[in-house]
Amino acid sequence: MSLNYPAEGRNYIMDAAIHGGQQIGTWYVALYEGDYTPQEDDTAANIGARATEITAYTELTRPELVESAATGGASDNTGNLAQFTLSAPKTVRGFAVVSSAGKGTNTGKLLAYQRLATPRAYAAGDVVKVPVSLILSNPA
């Protein structure tokens, strides 16, 4: 299972790394409950509505993605997992890495989206911990 990098995410990487574009210093994790398959044209403006973002959690904003330094074309947040304390029962079907901290906002950039292989149901009060692995690799 790997992250899907839609055109918006790939274009951001190219612009920031190759073309001297503005870099985004902080990324955030968003949870989704919709039965949705990532699409090439997903953006921060449409992913919340398409995939049904979960906003029923006690944290005031989306949790920050705190990742390790890149090595071997990969970076992850295993040392600091994104956490959500649910305030209602929810079934988590995926997550996204976005540049806006606001719950349910449709601004900023969508870097990547992950649909989980198996949805997982949680109760109110459960803490959802999300591991994120960002990997850039050559085609096989």
Rank of each mutant, 00 (worst) to 15 (best):
D76W: 05
Y36I: 01
I18K: 01
Q39A: 03
V29P: 09
Y57L: 02
R115S: 14
L111W: 13
V130R: 05
V127G: 04
A44D: 08
G104S: 05
T118E: 11
T78I: 09
N11F: 07
S75Y: 05
S68E: 15
G20S: 06
G102N: 15
S133K: 14
G48Q: 01
T61G: 04
L81V: 10
Y57T: 03
V66P: 02
T91Y: 07
E67R: 05
K129A: 15
S87C: 08
T37I: 05
A112R: 11
T37K: 04
S99W: 12
N11I: 06
Y5M: 03
D76V: 02
V132K: 01
Q114G: 13
N106G: 01
P139Y: 14
R10T: 06
T58A: 15
R120H: 09
A70C: 08
A88H: 10
R93H: 09
G9Q: 02
A17S: 07
S68P: 02
T78R: 10
S68M: 11
Y12D: 05
D126F: 04
D42I: 02
Y5N: 03
P119Y: 08
P63G: 09
S75V: 07
A101V: 11
A30V: 03
D126Q: 04
V128E: 10
R120C: 08
A45H: 04
T71H: 08
G125F: 01
Y12K: 01
I47H: 00
V92R: 08
T118M: 07
K109F: 00
T91D: 05
A140P: 15
G25F: 02
G9C: 01
Y5L: 04
V98M: 10
L81K: 14
I135T: 15
A70S: 13
A117R: 06
K109D: 00
G21L: 12
T107I: 11
A124D: 13
A123M: 06
N77F: 10
Y12C: 01
P89I: 04
G79H: 06
I135S: 13
Y5C: 00
G104W: 00
Y113G: 04
T58N: 10
T52M: 09
S75P: 01
Y12V: 01
E53W: 05
L111V: 12
R120W: 06
A140W: 13
N138E: 11
G73T: 03
E33S: 13
V127L: 10
S2T: 09
N106F: 01
E40T: 02
S137Y: 14
N77E: 15
D126G: 02
L110E: 05
M14D: 05
P63N: 06
Y122A: 10
D42E: 12
Y32M: 01
L136R: 11
I24A: 00
A101D: 15
A121W: 13
A117G: 11
P139W: 11
L116H: 05
P63C: 02
Y32A: 09
Q22P: 04
E67H: 10
F95N: 09
T43G: 07
Y28M: 07
V127I: 15
Y122V: 06
M1L: 12
W27E: 13
A51V: 01
N138Y: 12
S75A: 15
S75D: 01
A56R: 10
E40G: 00
A51M: 00
H19Q: 13
Q114W: 03
V97P: 04
A69W: 10
P139F: 11
G73Q: 04
G108H: 02
A96D: 14
T61I: 04
L110T: 06
T52D: 11
R10K: 07
A82E: 11
R93C: 07
I18E: 03
